[in-house]
Write a protein that binds this DNA or RNA. Structure first.
Lengths: 189, 189
DNA sequence: ACATTAAAACTAATTATATTAGTCTTAATG
DNA sequence: CATTAAGACTAATATAATTAGTTTTAATGT
């Protein structure tokens, strides 16, 4: 192996993840990343096609972690289907709060190439979908799932982007909104 | 006045808005913008402090247009408070679909300095807030408003970011989700 | 008519970043 | 001990934002 320092693809992605967690994707340059790994920027191209591919790998990492968090939460939840959905939506929000920069990079990206792929997204929402179907019935299950995801995702983004600045307890308001939404599905005419 | 071409701050912001509408903020460079105005990039600094200030002005423009769209919709709506809220949420979504790039730039921004200010945001949601209060009662009106905004904003972003790719009619699913949410508030125990 | 001023353009330079081309180092292999 | 190839390096290029310093020209005052 050449030269003192040595780096592999996984190291690079792990380090990128950490820098993004700390400072956000906007503040990640390949120079900084390389420096953190004790290497110069061009060396990274030995392991990663380009910055987009790197960020895509970071995003896949984020998706996998979120999937894991939701599966864990699903395994630990009990109660009525509605209560369990609520618990998963809270777990989802909790993840976003724990990893705001990674969450934003993974799930609010204009760049087609950086988006998590469809299969991963499906796997991600599967636990919620299953329970939601029990709440809404199978006919409307996709609409009900989409509404649920919109509600959490939207709430989280409004929080992360600083658009809920009028006070009050955001955790309580989130719980209240989720309950209203689920109650609406239970009260189908 | 000096030199053949001449440009003022409003021209610059209007042109930036148009380029962003067409191609997204990621594809706007000061070079392109200046060229579209028949001028060189450094000339822009005579009228705008820097790129951030320019984008901030563009975002304010977007907010004002959205405010106008919602006020117009509010003026034309009739029916029960729930029906009127639903109509406003549809108008909101419609605006986002008509102006996806501008919407994303204005409302999904990590950069503190680019965010629409609090007063403008309040003005924006005021028509929705007023009606929502009639649905939820005044006690819970802030939570109810936040949930409604989260639902639309989240739904729109999932759409714009290509995360609802499993078919079905998204307009119908949106309407369905909104109805469920509002029904939930009407069915408060 | 002419000199002055000031707004607003310009060119040239600086910094940062991603990326490519071409070179050097060294561990492993024959 | 020679060769090879992975993986580092330096140097160079292109694009962007931004700053410094210069030039143009309309308007103003004498």
């Amino acid at each position: 192996m050449p030269y003192p320092s040595q780096v592999n693809r996984d190291d690079i992605i792990a380090q990128a993840w950490q820098l993004i967690e700390a400072d956000g994707a906007d503040n990640l340059s390949l120079n900084k990343l390389a420096a953190a790994l004790g290497v110069k920027a061009p060396s990274l191209y030995r392991h990663v096609a380009n910055k987009a591919a790197l960020l895509q790998a970071v995003n896949e990492n984020t998706s996998l972690r979120l999937i894991e968090a939701l599966q864990t939460a699903a395994a630990q939840t009990s109660g009525s289907p509605s209560e369990q959905v609520a618990a998963l939506l809270h777990a989802y929000r909790h993840f976003a709060h724990e990893h705001p920069h990674s969450y934003l990079l993974a799930f609010t990206n204009t760049d087609e190439a950086l988006r998590p792929d469809a299969a991963l997204l499906e796997q991600m929402v599967l636990p919620i979908q299953t329970l939601m179907t029990a709440v809404s019935g199978p006919e409307q299950s996709l609409a009900a799932l989409r509404g649920a995801m919109a509600l959490v995702h939207g709430f989280v983004l409004l929080e992360l982007h600083g658009q809920l600045r009028r006070g009050g307890d955001l955790a309580v308001d989130f719980a209240t909104a989720v309950q209203a939404y689920l109650r609406g599905w239970e009260a189908v005419p």
